[in-house]
Design a protein around this nucleic acid. Structure first.
Lengths: 254, 254
DNA sequence: CTTGACTTTGACGTAGCGTCAACTTGTAGC
DNA sequence: GCTACAAGTTGACGCTACGTCAAAGTCAAG
């Protein structure tokens, strides 16, 4: 087992030994071995954990939140996969920032006014953190539960069978390497959306196409970002496939 | 002149009014107007400045450093252009992080050991922060710009025409379903490399074949991963084709 | 056995805000 | 014109994630 001194680790990870000691004190990252002289030594597993800590910190999480997240997701692999997703979102955010700055430049060039929301696009971040928290807290549970409880036993069986079939189809398509924009995926997406529309209390059961579109698109994102859902579709790869297929369907057909 | 209240600005920019007041106190960002009631109001110019402040802060600079940077670079446009470059570098760093995590995952899968430096690639940040701060002060008025600015109008036209031709050829080859290792693609790759060599200040204009090889190979990867470039070559399919052709060319001829 | 790099545990300092508190101002409805 | 009520102001203290010293032990090399 290879192990590294505190300074070696700090250097490679781009932090300081003080930080590592701090993480040790906070119970975030214990060294894999402590010499009887008190020296801290770190092995591969500790480095993986450090990698995850640094990632989460870079995403703006506080140390207690990081600790919680690490404890909740003991199996490292899916967590890392989720991190990749996060990073890709970060990339998209940076892209938006770049575009935003370009707009600012051209606006300066032509001395024209641009809308503030255009200028700040991509800088927000906090704006949709609330959005997410709201979306989870109340609206999800209330009406949906009422409706569900009112159903008969047979109806419930029919419903869950249908959901299972939907999910199985999605996974099959993903594993077959299908194209999200392809015909099969799109008919599946149509089924998915009409199923959503069958659930009262969701925007998908509305007649307003714009609302439906927004709802379905957001839902796709949630499928990817929320493990609870992602699990239905074969974790991340399946969930992204579903998201993309739904997004394309929305663009084309709504 | 449009102007916005402190809260409007905070909301759009994704920060808080407290932060804006703090920046005011620190002399970083003064409101464009202060009502005789003490209310702060911000105009377009102030928003541009705020945009830059938030950017620099996101890059990890301290407030005094930001102040200095803003005072030193009064002319906004080149500063914004430099920011774009920075952001693109950030994007590449994120890409490296993603790759790094993927390597970590595969390493976990095969339970093999990977070198620490591999695992931490892209996480460093501090390592090349110095590099960045240097680039701010002096090299910002780049040699690349110098070279470009020194060209005549006709030369510029010739240059861009040549680039357009290169790109068009690549796209044509891609769409014709050509083989990256084939003769046509390889002569095109040779043209591309010699064009790169014509731009001074890039490693491709060096005589060291190893350096050229590394540079061109990396560039190929960037073509694929960076939208800005990928767009030149017909998005992803074209960009991968270019990357492969260049890689093969490097292997064979350098 | 000395020198110098590296480590430890405290302990206090700091930057960039968050978070009250106490008060004043603009705006909407009656 | 009065009353709510949201949004603004200026202090002032608090907090997080470390930075930065201090005092002292450890290790490898010469």
């Amino acid at each position: 087992m290879n192990e590294y001194s505190i300074q070696e680790v700090a250097k490679q990870a781009g932090t300081t030994s003080r930080t590592l000691r701090h993480y040790d004190d906070e119970g975030l990252l214990a060294p894999s071995r402590v010499g009887n002289n008190g020296y801290r030594y770190y092995d591969q597993a500790a480095l993986v954990r450090l990698q995850r800590i640094l990632l989460l910190r870079e995403l703006g999480l506080g140390l207690p939140a990081i600790k919680e997240a690490l404890e909740r997701q003991q199996n490292v692999e899916p967590a890392l996969a989720a991190h990749i997703e996060w990073l890709q979102e970060e990339r998209r955010r940076i892209d938006r920032q770049i575009k935003s700055i370009k707009r600012t430049i051209t606006a300066l060039e032509i001395k024209g006014d641009i809308a503030m929301s255009d200028m700040m696009d991509g800088f927000d971040q906090a704006q949709y953190r609330d959005e997410v928290e709201q979306r989870w807290g109340k609206e999800a549970a209330d009406k949906s539960n009422e409706w569900w409880d009112s159903k008969s036993k047979e109806d419930k069986v029919v419903f869950t069978d249908f959901v299972d079939e939907l999910n199985a189809n999605w996974i099959a398509l993903t594993e077959a390497g299908a194209d999200p924009a392809g015909e099969e995926a799109q008919t599946q997406a149509a089924k998915h959306v009409s199923w959503l529309a069958s659930v009262p209390g969701t925007p998908a059961s509305t007649d307003d196409p714009a609302l439906v579109k927004e709802y379905v698109t957001n839902l796709g994102e949630i499928y990817v970002s929320d493990d609870r859902f992602a699990e239905n579709y074969g974790r991340i790869p399946g969930a992204t496939f579903v998201r993309d297929a739904l997004a394309i369907y929305c663009e084309r057909s709504l």
